[in-house]
Simulated assay, not measured.
Amino acid sequence: MLLRFLFVLACGLGVSASAMAATPSVLTTIKPVQLIAAAVLEGVAEPDVLLPPGASPHNYALRPSDRRRIVNADRLYWVGPDLERFLQQLLDSQLSARRLDEVPELTLRRFDDEHAEHSHDDHQAHESEPEHDEHEHEHEHEHEPGTLDPHIWLSVRNAQHIALWMATDLAEVYPEHGERLQRNAADFVQRLDHLHERQRQRLQPLADKPYFVFHDAYGYLQDSLGIHPRGVFTLSEEIQPGARHVNTLRQQLTAAGPTCVFREPQFPARRVESLTAGLPVRSAELDPLGMDITPDARGYETLLETLGDTLANCLEEL
């Protein structure tokens, strides 16, 4: 009886494993791409995400379990080597991997473009290069001039093109749901058109309000909304800046007058407080990766709404 029970159990487990193996899986490297995929896959499947909350796509260290998830994925969407540098060698030979920075009709920025690097046109307020000594370690700007700005998901138009392209690509994985995928993508595009118009109407009157960011990640969003920062502060969350560097940044803030400073979740709030102490500065947090957003059909819209509202709420108070 025991042998018969073990045989039946083994057969049952075999069927279960086969059924699980037959279920297609969609994996994205970062949360924003997962949010776009979730909108396209609504009612069909739930995409998974590789990077855990708080992890940087610039320098993530793959675990053995991550490698297994990559190999087993029926589709893996990543932005490209300008963002997820740690994946380039592995994904070059991965047939299921799709580079999103190669999707047709995207608008791509480079960090030596007119609106790239530290500022925009007449609002330029470049940092002076601080002198270094053995006790002061400054953080180099993470993006070299001429390289692709990989934050392509922060453009509404790019997100729309990616969604439409994903719908066609995912129809190969879910052929019985091709029409549903196309319909989901079309609905996503229409919703984003309405959201984009609302955000432009709110933010364009604030275009002359000064603000600074700590990460040169928002060029696509800023270009689409018609706003641009006075500067990008190149401080590292890991390295304490030297006194001369902090003084240079405070000089920029003083010259700007009442202004907004936007940090990111991984950047210590106390660093911003020490930098802005005694100045007429408002601070707020922007999260371009949407770490806390639920990956559902409206998740990408929530990401854009959160970013736009955070910008507008602070600038409107100046």
Rank of each mutant, 00 (worst) to 15 (best):
2 L>R: 11
5 F>E: 15
6 L>W: 09
12 G>Y: 11
14 G>T: 10
20 M>N: 13
28 T>Q: 06
30 I>Q: 03
38 A>P: 05
40 V>M: 00
44 V>I: 09
45 A>E: 14
47 P>S: 04
50 L>C: 04
52 P>D: 05
53 P>I: 06
55 A>W: 00
59 N>I: 03
61 A>E: 06
64 P>Y: 09
65 S>T: 15
74 D>H: 08
76 L>F: 15
83 L>H: 06
88 Q>W: 12
89 Q>Y: 11
92 D>C: 09
94 Q>M: 07
94 Q>W: 01
95 L>N: 08
96 S>C: 05
105 E>R: 12
109 R>E: 12
109 R>V: 04
116 A>Y: 06
118 H>F: 14
119 S>I: 05
119 S>A: 14
127 E>H: 10
127 E>P: 04
129 E>T: 15
130 P>Y: 04
137 H>N: 03
140 E>Y: 03
141 H>C: 13
142 E>M: 15
144 E>W: 00
149 D>W: 08
151 H>W: 05
154 L>F: 05
156 V>S: 02
157 R>H: 13
158 N>D: 06
159 A>F: 00
160 Q>E: 13
161 H>S: 07
163 A>C: 06
164 L>D: 07
165 W>L: 00
167 A>F: 02
172 E>Q: 08
177 H>T: 02
177 H>Q: 10
181 L>Y: 02
181 L>T: 03
183 R>Y: 00
186 A>C: 00
186 A>F: 00
198 R>K: 09
203 L>N: 05
207 A>W: 01
207 A>C: 03
209 K>Y: 15
210 P>Y: 03
216 D>Q: 10
226 G>P: 12
232 V>E: 09
233 F>L: 13
235 L>M: 12
241 P>A: 08
242 G>C: 12
242 G>H: 03
252 Q>D: 14
253 L>H: 08
253 L>N: 10
255 A>H: 06
256 A>S: 15
257 G>H: 07
267 F>D: 08
269 A>D: 14
270 R>D: 13
274 S>H: 10
275 L>D: 11
278 G>K: 00
281 V>Y: 11
284 A>E: 07
287 D>K: 13
289 L>I: 09
294 T>F: 07
297 A>I: 05
299 G>W: 00
304 L>P: 00
305 E>L: 05
305 E>W: 01
311 L>G: 11
315 L>Y: 11
315 L>M: 15
317 E>R: 14
